[in-house]
Computed example of a mutant assay.
Amino acid sequence: MSKKRVLITGGAGFLGSHLCDRFIKEGYHVIAMDNLITGSMDNIAHLMKLPQFEFYHCDVSKYVHVPGELDYILHFASPASPIDYLKMPIQTLKVGSLGTHNLLGLAKAKKARILVASTSEVYGDPLVHPQNEEYWGNVNPVGPRGVYDEAKRFQEAITMAYHTFHGLETRIVRIFNTYGPRMRLNDGRALPAFIGQALRGEDITVFGDGSQTRSFCYVDDLIDGIYRLLLSDYAKPVNIGNPDEITLKEFAEEIQKLTGTQSKIVYRPLPTDDPKQRRPDISLAKKLLGWEPKYSRAEGLKPTYEFFKNQLNPKS
């Protein structure tokens, strides 16, 4: 029997490359697609010689063509950190709108099931805590973060339109803060920023007074949740994340202890529209998918720290 074929856009990125690993492990033929504006071939170098793996250098916002049959599409192409989408606002909006439209069209033509990667950012700076899937969000569409938030909100809307109008099999995952090996040290998010600063002996920069919260999910847990959601029969959005909430001040102190750094914590003004709190309600994922995170933050931070340490000081 021939292997099932899956297309993963953003396949050379942090999450996309981990998805490639999971689907290879599960026995699929994997086609990774990436334009490499934030992804890296280093993330998938170990897969390139495998006969069940292909890589296409392609910008899905322009055109998507994949020969042969496809069973599944996972759309993970997008700048995903503030430093990226503030630097590339138009590309961010295009990949969420035009890119998603192209991939939904491909899924329809191939009769494939498609899962799109949405984000907790659709909730904006939330007025409901923790955030559940019924909450519609508090988003500033014309603020600096609007290019990412609204791209993802549109992505959800057009995905549901294809589901209801064309009967397409669709899945939507709302991803909360995730970390692990293959994150970029310079991607601007709190976890790599804190560890990078500690490793370089720089001050650890906390924005605002540090009372804002985040909930960090280890990448292996997230990938398992996404895999289960793809194979489920539920079309509406599902939160996948770790509900273990921590303030950024407490998290910076954890990084000080983890790294043994002498770096001090310094405070800078809070960026515009930065969410004050973020914690997923994962009741739906537990009920539908039998999923909840297995890794504690302490367990996940160890391999993540080792990865970053090796990035700054590669072993000879």
Rank of each mutant, 00 (worst) to 15 (best):
D34C: 07
N35T: 01
N35F: 11
N35Y: 14
N35G: 01
N35D: 15
L36E: 06
L36V: 04
L36I: 06
L36P: 00
L36G: 04
I37N: 08
I37Y: 13
T38G: 11
T38K: 05
T38L: 04
G39I: 04
G39V: 06
M41Q: 14
M41D: 07
M41C: 08
D42K: 13
D42M: 11
D42T: 13
D42G: 05
N43Y: 06
N43D: 07
I44N: 02
A45E: 15
H46A: 07
H46F: 12
H46G: 04
H46E: 06
L47N: 06
L47I: 07
L47G: 00
K49W: 10
K49P: 05
L50V: 02
L50W: 11
P51D: 15
Q52V: 06
Q52G: 00
Q52C: 10
F53Y: 15
F53L: 07
F53G: 05
E54A: 09
F55T: 04
F55P: 00
Y56S: 00
H57E: 15
V60F: 03
S61Q: 07
S61E: 06
K62I: 10
K62W: 08
K62L: 15
V64T: 10
V64Q: 02
H65D: 14
H65N: 13
H65S: 14
V66W: 01
V66P: 01
P67H: 09
P67L: 01
P67F: 09
G68R: 10
E69K: 14
E69D: 13
E69T: 09
L70Y: 06
L70M: 07
D71C: 02
Y72K: 05
Y72G: 03
I73L: 13
I73M: 05
L74T: 02
H75I: 06
F76M: 14
A77R: 08
P79W: 03
P79V: 02
P79K: 02
A80P: 01
A80Y: 03
A80R: 02
A80F: 01
S81H: 11
P82K: 10
P82M: 11
I83G: 10
I83M: 11
D84S: 12
D84Y: 09
Y85T: 03
Y85A: 01
Y85K: 04
L86V: 09
K87M: 10
M88P: 01
M88K: 11
I90H: 07
Q91A: 15
Q91W: 04
Q91F: 09
Q91S: 12
Q91K: 12
Q91L: 12
T92Y: 03
L93R: 08
L93N: 01
L93P: 00
K94N: 11
V95K: 04
V95L: 08
V95R: 01
G96A: 08
G96V: 05
S97V: 13
L98G: 00
L98A: 12
L98Q: 12
G99Q: 08
